[in-house]
């Protein structure tokens, strides 16, 4: 089991110029923001289930950037069909990292399906994403970095995390129009 926040920060340390990062609703956005403010970040604070299709649209529109999505098991379980869509409309520049703490921590740590019988790596493989694997210790760091920057995507990584609540770290703005325009300004047209 991994401590998610320092692990996200480690992945984003010395990030390359061609990386753009999206995060799904909830703790994933606070984790992303904890790594430091960056115009190349866009964090969801609502619209649960939409971060995966959003990342697909972005990756398709911006093939010259590496797109990294951090999201949770709750957000992912809400849009499992989008994984099939990505498999069948593939993008080589997209890595999805599911920070799987097996619970809805922000609402009181109710268990998600992954605390039970559900395996997101197998769902991604079954959906048609061949480069899908699970990381359970920090030893997976090097492999993840290679996937994020070098491997042909789409890739789907499940990072098993401790179900521990962490302090909220707010983004630059809660106003979505400010966030998206700032994020868009970080990319060449």
């Amino acid at each position: 089991m991994i401590e998610r926040r320092p692990f996200v920060q480690k992945i984003l340390k010395n990030r390359k110029d061609n990386l753009r990062v999206v995060s799904g609703i909830g703790t994933s956005t606070w984790d992303l923001m904890s790594a430091g403010d960056n115009v190349g970040n866009f964090g969801f604070i609502g619209a649960m289930g939409q971060s995966i299709p959003f990342a697909l649209g972005l990756a398709k529109a911006k093939p010259n950037y590496r797109i990294l999505l951090f999201t949770g098991d709750g957000d992912t379980l809400m849009s499992l069909g989008s994984i099939s869509t990505i498999a069948n409309h593939p993008v080589s520049n997209l890595t999805m990292i599911v920070l799987d703490n097996e619970s809805y921590v922000e609402t009181g740590s109710q268990p998600t399906a992954t605390a039970g019988k559900t395996d997101l790596e197998l769902i991604a493989k079954g959906s048609g994403i061949n480069n899908s694997y699970t990381v359970k210790s920090e030893e997976g760091y090097e492999k993840i970095m290679k996937t994020v920057y070098e491997e042909e995507g789409p890739s789907f990584i499940v990072v098993k995390c401790k179900p521990k609540a962490t302090p909220l770290v707010f983004p630059h703005s809660f106003d979505g129009s400010v966030s998206i325009n700032r994020f868009m300004s970080s990319m060449n047209s």
């Binding site: 299709p53 649209g57 398709k60 529109a61």
Partner: peptide, 9 residues
Amino acid sequence: GLSCGAYAG
């Protein structure tokens, strides 16, 4: 979501 991500790009 797809449409919004594409627009962002």
